[in-house]
Design a binder for these strands. Structure first.
Lengths: 400, 400
DNA sequence: CCTGGCACTCGGTAGAATCGAGTGCCAGGA
DNA sequence: TCCTGGCACTCGATTCTACCGAGTGCCAGG
């Protein structure tokens, strides 16, 4: 082992190695084939792939090199090759064509966003269903936090003799609530006065821990106002990250080991984990995390595709896809990208000026929108690492 | 086949047949063993089971009869027996001892309900996690509908120039909201007036389609009031059934065929189906639906255990468990029963007088509560059919 | 009516044989 | 120097056989 005559065009060998065109083509063929069939790919298959014009023997020797460099592995001697995580990574960064959605899918998306209605929670939930439908992978939608949304309205509603509900409406349309145990009977007028008082302090500011309410003369009012103010603070801690998971049944189809399915489902159930997973990946500027690139052991056989949802320029949540490492990256990336974008537009519209979009837009309109979207996708899709990945490289075998 | 000398003590033979004690004991042994091991049970195993004092040969002949009558099946000749759905049904109705939770589990429940806090959605979600933890099955919590809850407060909050949010607070503490596209700019005062106007009509009544608001003089107010009233009607249709599913990863452990897992997960994702499933089962007065007893093909290998959640005497939602037909019925029934009851109490408390329970109740208190609960369970648990199932029958092998 | 005994069934396991996809290597040729 | 066809070899998957043993149905005797 460690044959001395290593074939490196490049001096350094950490991570983002270069591969000559032929190796790259072979790697691409292997990945593509394996994604499709889930079977180890042999040299012969690669030789017959489009765009490759060398014999299987040559391919074999190249494969040996690719294996030595960590892009491929053999499950056992005398079997075909399987891509490693590193192999997938190279594929995603350097090889995969942007890939746009098929027309049917594009139409699905357009139709969805034309027709979806209802409040944010419902919309996000359905969006996750859409993503999962488009791709056949499990999907995750991370709701935008309300960190920056300011308080628009605040109300105290009496529910029982000693029970009241604090209802806060934020500028982005979110409604938060919290029951307050008043400990003694409080007349409605006091509730109203206290609410008005707290609103005076909080209005226009984002939800934040306990903005101290200035004391009035009235003891009862002050007490209630204090409680409400404290509850405001708890609200922000309480319900900040909401996650919507869709299509978890797809996981069962994607993995054949029932144990894998179980462990992945377990992760998906822990919303905290899902949130930090998506956050981590996004923060590192990635849109794809393959295998062990994120830190979660039980997701070692999974890949995660994430796309940000931006409303008016700044990040507000994210959409993600969770599938096997042998997922169809181009498609998944395109789907996440498009849905994330459209969702962002939609959210901006809802909170801003446009309001609920016209239902039943005619087929003509839908068509146009789909066209725009296809454009966007083909041009803008940037998938890959944040570390200045070379873009627009290579485009062999032009004709599929 | 169709041996003429059928051994029926009883004349009629539809559904709820009687079994003599020995057959019943054998059936019970088979079910118990199979639930534990998931392996076909042979006559020898049954013979060594507690409470059975006949030879394996005798058991074999009894088993033949049980098979002929449809309580057992053989996967193939020369294998042990497996209970049929009918076998499980008999077991649940006639044989299974009520079964209470173990002390550790009881404590878990008590602790949970002592500590849980936050708003209803969050509580229900966690409750479903609790149930699933207790039993290792997937759990479903059906949120109480707001059909009977009356409107307490109604507010229109301006979000943008032509956008407002209708916020309705119901007497049970639920908050419903809906964005309204106002089509033109409307000053806040008009929104407030319109809201007050609609509230005058709707307050104290349950949410219902379009309670027509009487016209005032002001055209703008009337227009907004009309929109708000219409939105009220849509609210009731929109968000009526909320379902919380927990522990779906348990399904992967319960079934070994990945295809089964997939199809069950698919069902769980369709909330409508889950809702009507639980409803159906409850309506038929059952607390258990085994195999094909409910109509859903893809759940043929599942059993569903349901317990009602009643708040102040009337039904308000339900809790359910979904597992393989070879589930541990006594335990599942007890868990669902207890959690359903406690959840009901808790909900009644939240909407009524008690308010948020004291946190950090000392171990003494928790202990007492657990005791009460155990009592309740042992005495009251009625699991079985609505068709006047004979209760308190049979109790062989007293000493376990 | 129960029981021990007996012949029989048949799924599951183990081992041997076979198949074939795929490999590594090498000598010959462009 | 690099590619290619050829060849021996590996080894998982498949098939076949034998065999074990859990479990059965049946029957004669208690």
């Amino acid at each position: 082992m460690e044959k001395s005559a290593g074939r490196r065009h490049d001096g350094h060998s950490h991570g983002d190695e270069e591969l000559d065109d032929r190796k790259a083509a072979i790697l691409e063929a292997v990945v593509t084939e394996y994604i499709g069939t889930a079977q180890p790919v042999g040299s012969h298959h690669v030789a017959t792939a489009a765009g490759i014009n060398v014999s299987s023997a040559t391919i074999r020797s190249e494969m040996v090199a690719l294996e030595r460099e960590g892009f491929l592995v053999q499950p056992h001697t005398s079997a075909g090759r399987i891509p490693t995580d590193k192999g997938y990574r190279f594929f995603v960064d350097q090889l995969a064509e942007p890939g746009s959605l098929g027309p049917a899918q594009r139409q699905k998306v357009s139709r969805f966003f034309d027709q979806v209605h209802g409040e944010m929670e419902q919309m996000l939930e359905r969006t996750s269903g859409l993503l999962s439908d488009l791709t056949s992978y499990a999907s995750v939608v991370l709701a935008p936090g309300h960190e920056s949304a300011t308080v628009r309205s605040l109300q105290l509603v009496g529910l029982g003799p000693r029970l009241a509900l604090l209802v806060v409406v934020l500028a982005d349309g979110a409604v938060e609530k919290r029951t307050l145990d008043l400990a003694e009977e409080v007349p409605d007028e006091v509730l109203a006065t206290a609410a008005a008082h707290v609103l005076g302090v909080a209005q226009g500011h984002p939800l934040a821990p306990a903005p101290a309410p200035a004391p009035t003369g009235d003891h009862a009012v002050d007490r209630i106002a204090g409680m409400a103010a404290a509850a405001l603070g708890e609200l922000v801690a309480d319900e900040q990250d909401r996650v919507f998971v869709g299509g978890s049944s797809r996981l069962a189809a994607a993995f054949d080991a029932v144990e894998t399915v179980r462990s992945v489902l377990t992760i998906l159930e822990q919303q905290l984990v899902v949130v930090s997973l998506l956050r981590d990946v996004l923060e590192r500027g990635l849109s794809v995390a393959i295998g062990t690139e994120h830190g979660y052991e039980s997701l070692a056989s999974c890949a995660v595709v994430v796309a940000p949802v931006s409303v008016d320029g700044h990040h507000a949540g994210a959409v993600g896809l969770l599938g096997p490492t042998r997922m169809n990256y181009p498609e998944a990336l395109a789907a996440a990208q498009v849905v994330g974008e459209r969702l962002g537009e939609r959210l901006a519209g809802a909170a801003g000026t446009v309001g609920v979009a016209a239902h039943d837009a005619g087929p003509g309109t839908a068509q146009d929108t789909a066209q725009d979207m296809a454009q966007d996708t083909a041009e803008d899709t940037t998938h890959g690492t944040g570390r200045g990945a070379a873009r627009g490289r290579r485009r062999r075998h032009a004709g599929r």
